[in-house]
Design a protein around this nucleic acid. Structure first.
Length: 454
DNA sequence: AGCACA
């Protein structure tokens, strides 16, 4: 049996890497492209049609062995992909076959080029964008993208099924929308049909340039729409109040009869931390907010150079109590880590992984990613002693009345690992310092939820 | 037509 192994063919045709290097010693230390790759279970494909799906990659590789993993739509043009075989010999078989075949490898009639990948396995950075769900994240590209109305989007996506809700927002990625369908199947059919396509011209005003849709899945499952407005719609609830004009452009805040700000209450709080001299960890936040009721989920993220967190309670009442008690107060003595709290537009955070920035406490067995050993050790809530328990179902005390003020705050300042040595206040507890005045309003509006921010 | 950054 003749040897098709391209390693030998390549070695005969091309100079070896060391020869290449010695021939251009004065130039870059590493050649940009190697003409002979060492064999790998992973194959790199290019010149694919951008519509290419994982199924088509599997079909392509199946004749040569077991495809254990794929990744498509790779690269700036989304026209590259990777196929990983169970066995190295299977990858060699595929490369060998197409090296000597008169018929090139094809996907949808397009010739695709194959080579060994320079990596040994596909790292599947499965983000929310890859996991099918009922909510789509739509980026509208084009100079006039932001002129596309929510009604046009509704029309375009309604072709595939009932559209429950749409929210639109502006991010660094540009003008984006979240479009909620009843199920992942409907969302997928819309995504497959519309991704990369442009909004039909007849739906847009004549003067507008082309608007291309880039679509991924969102991690969200249920969008929270408080008002019908030019930015967001809930088509399942026609009686939802229309946004008061005061809301326009300013998000959730509106003005009450007395002229003071009114906020739309929510079971999810947005906390931003000012003067963060000390590390504020997930566990610290969990402890602080657990004083008012069971904390279901926390997501921390950086925003405008500061730290923010979304804290989810099961109900709005608990969130109101927590907000009233905590607003303007400091986690540590001396004005450090001052909390500013507002209501989030979210009602249900989507936590994909439990790590040091986000946690879903309702799913205790969720896999923990990035579980590096830390000073916190293995416990999830290391500061909780028996005397300061977090919420647990059998524990009384989360009635309608707030906990007995700060004193009940389950902060243990003894051996406080979050405090730098030598800065411990002499009188240990309570950790919360109530300032005498409390005039500061939240300065930031929650914008979490555009995806891609995590 | 050339290797996965969000």
């Amino acid at each position: 049996m003749p040897c098709f192994c391209p390693r030998f063919q390549g070695a005969a045709k091309f100079p070896t890497e060391s020869v290449l290097l010695s021939g251009m010693a004065s130039v870059s230390s590493q050649p940009q492209f190697r003409y002979t790759q060492p064999p790998s279970k992973v194959l790199h494909l290019r010149n694919l049609p951008w519509e290419c799906t994982e199924e088509e990659l599997i079909e392509l590789g199946k004749p040569f062995g077991k495809v254990v993993n794929t990744k498509c739509n790779v690269g700036a043009n989304r026209n590259q992909a990777f196929i990983e075989f169970a066995d190295l010999n299977q990858a060699i078989a595929m490369i060998s076959y197409y090296a000597s075949s008169s018929e090139p490898a094809q996907v949808r009639g397009k010739t695709v080029y194959l080579q060994y990948s320079n990596r040994q396995e596909i790292v599947n950075n499965k983000t929310a964008a890859d996991v099918p769900g009922n909510v789509l994240l739509v980026t509208i590209e084009g100079t006039d993208a932001r002129l596309v109305s929510i009604d046009v989007l509704h029309l375009v996506f309604s072709a595939f099924g009932f559209v429950h809700k749409i929210t639109t927002f502006e991010k660094t990625a540009g003008f984006q929308a979240l479009v909620q369908f009843s199920d992942a199947e409907t969302a997928t059919s819309a995504k497959d049909a519309l991704d990369g396509r442009s909004i039909p011209r007849y739906l847009l005003p004549e003067h507008m340039g082309p608007c291309t849709l880039r679509i991924t899945y969102s991690g969200h499952s249920d969008l929270s729409v408080k008002f019908q407005s030019h930015r967001s719609r809930d088509y399942t609830n026609p009686y939802l109040p229309v946004a008061p004009s005061a809301v326009e452009g300013s998000g959730q805040a509106m003005v009450g009869l007395d002229g003071k700000r009114l906020e739309t209450e929510s079971n999810v709080l947005l906390a931003s931390i000012e003067n963060m001299q000390y590390a504020v960890t997930l566990d610290v936040l969990h402890m602080v907010f657990s004083a008012f009721g069971p904390v279901q989920k926390i997501a921390m993220f950086d925003k405008n150079g500061g730290l923010q967190a979304l804290i989810q309670y099961p109900d709005t009442q608990t969130a109101i109590v927590a907000k009233e008690a905590l607003e303007g107060h400091c986690i540590y003595d001396g004005g450090f880590c001052k909390l500013h709290i507002s209501y989030s537009r979210h009602t249900d955070l989507s936590i994909k992984v439990n790590n040091d920035r986000s946690r879903d406490y309702t799913i205790p067995n969720m896999p923990v990613v990035n579980a590096q050993p830390s000073i916190l050790g293995q416990q999830s809530v290391p500061m909780m002693g028996p005397s300061a328990q977090p919420y647990n179902g059998s524990q009384p005390g989360w009635g309608s009345a707030p906990p007995a003020g700060v004193q009940s705050m389950p902060m243990q300042m003894h051996n406080n690992i979050y405090m730098p040595p030598g800065t411990m206040p002499s009188q240990a507890a309570p950790g919360m310092q109530f300032p005498s005045h409390n005039t500061t309003q939240p300065s930031t509006m929650p914008t979490y939820g555009s995806d891609r921010t995590q």
